[in-house]
């Protein structure tokens, strides 16, 4: 756990330590209608506190991806409630959801999802530009975020000129730039070799040490083992939720 001093230094938007960032209560998600109904989530209740480092695991078809979409405000539950940083997002419309994603969540994707025509700096600035932030402030925050992931000297390179590990670091910087309540990583190491995987996981660990809330979705046990808490999903339900005896490393 990070110290209160570190958390305070992270500035705006960071709730005080220990408060739940994520609170799911009886979340169900049903796809389709009538006879073709598929219940992907069958009632998930869980709480993740500020500063936790959580891995969500599960085989394909377990409902892991659906859970990730709901956690990421990309989708809303059919039933149940979801409070993100104290705000009920389960009944929001598309526009409010977009704003919630912009302000509260930093995404890291398996495929990096950087825009190839833009420099690293502009890629990191992208979520800030949707937050109606002035150009100067945006630039400053993006530069800070790139410095933090150790790419301060590669700001003006385009994604094509970087290695996979570096690209994923840019993506992490993009997720960090707006100082979100939650860092949500969906299979962030799925496209990386082992060196780059270690590199990125070390970065997550470091961010966790600094007091960031990190939720990592993965199917790889050794990746999940780096987290402080592992939640296993099976058939749309929480199968197990355990705090690791020791943080691997």
């Amino acid at each position: 756990m990070a110290s209160a001093g570190v958390a305070a230094s992270l500035g705006v938007g960071t709730p005080s330590l220990g408060l739940p960032v994520i609170e799911l209560d009886g979340v169900r998600k049903v796809y389709g209608n009538g006879q073709l109904e598929v219940e992907a989530l069958k009632g998930i209740t869980l709480s993740i506190a500020q500063g936790e480092y959580v891995a969500i695991m599960g085989p394909s078809g377990s409902g892991k991806s659906t859970l990730m979409h709901i956690l990421g405000c990309l989708d809303v539950p059919t039933a149940g409630s979801y409070h993100l940083a104290g705000e009920d997002v389960s009944t929001m419309d598309e526009i409010d959801l977009a704003e919630a994603r912009n302000r509260r969540i930093g995404f890291v994707f398996q495929q990096f999802n950087l825009l190839p025509s833009m420099t690293a700096l502009r890629n990191v600035e992208l979520p800030l530009s949707y937050a109606a932030m002035s150009r100067d402030k945006r630039r400053l925050l993006a530069q800070e975020a790139l410095d933090r992931v150790g790419l301060g000297d590669r700001m003006n390179h385009k994604p094509g000129e970087m290695s996979g590990g570096q690209q994923q670091r840019v993506a992490v910087a993009r997720a960090l730039a707006s100082n979100p309540a939650l860092l949500l990583a969906d299979e962030p190491t799925g496209n990386l070799d082992s060196t780059a995987t270690d590199d990125v996981l070390a970065l997550f660990h470091e961010l966790h040490q600094q007091g960031r809330t990190v939720v990592l979705i993965t199917h790889e046990a050794d990746v999940a083992a780096r987290a402080a808490r592992v939640i296993r999903i099976r058939d749309g339900l929480v199968a197990s939720d355990e705090v690791a005896a020791e943080v691997a490393r």
Binding site: A98, E99, R101, R103, F107, R174
Partner: peptide
């Protein structure tokens, strides 16, 4: 399509 998805995930509203 992917770019649009990304922009939306990062906070782009349908209007933008």
């Amino acid at each position: 399509t992917r770019e649009i998805g990304l922009r939306k995930a990062l906070g782009g509203t349908p209007m933008v």
